[in-house]
Simulated scan of single mutants.
Amino acid sequence: MPPKKAGSKLLNWASHLDDNALAQARETASMPFVHPHLALMPDAHSGMGSAVGTVIPTLGAVIPAAVGVDIGCGMIGVRTGFTKSDVGGRDLSVLRLAIEASIPLSMGNYNADVHAWDFTAPKLAELEGMAAANSVDLSHSPKWREQLGSLGSGNHFIEMCLDETDQVWLFLHSGSRGVGNKIAQKHIKIAQRLCAQWWIDLPNKDLAYLPEGTPEFSRYIKDLRWAQRFAYLNRAEMMDRFGAVFARWMGTENHLELERVNCHHNYTVKETHAKKDVWLTRKGAVDAHEGVKAIIPGSMGTRSYVVIGKGSASGLCSAPHGAGRRFSRTEARKRFTLEDLRNRMVGIEFRDGEEFVDEIPDSYKDIDVVMADASDLVTIEHELRQILNVKGT
Rank of each mutant, 00 (worst) to 15 (best):
P36S: 03
A61L: 10
T302Y: 05
E383K: 09
G47N: 00
L97H: 12
E27F: 15
K283M: 08
E126A: 15
F350D: 07
L170M: 03
I76T: 08
P57E: 02
R385N: 10
L341W: 15
V136F: 11
V52M: 02
G251E: 14
V292Q: 11
V278G: 05
G251I: 11
D19W: 10
L138T: 14
A29L: 07
Q228I: 09
Q24R: 03
L22E: 01
I308F: 10
G178W: 02
E128C: 15
A23N: 08
A274R: 04
W13C: 09
Y232W: 06
L388D: 11
P203G: 15
V67F: 05
S153C: 12
P361M: 09
D118Q: 10
Q386L: 13
I183W: 01
P64C: 14
F242M: 09
Q192R: 13
G309V: 06
L224F: 06
N204F: 08
D118Y: 14
S312Q: 01
A25H: 01
R225K: 11
G178H: 06
M130F: 13
A247I: 05
W117S: 10
N155E: 09
V67L: 07
D362Q: 15
S30R: 07
D287C: 12
T393A: 12
N343V: 13
A133H: 14
S328I: 06
E146T: 05
H187R: 01
S50I: 02
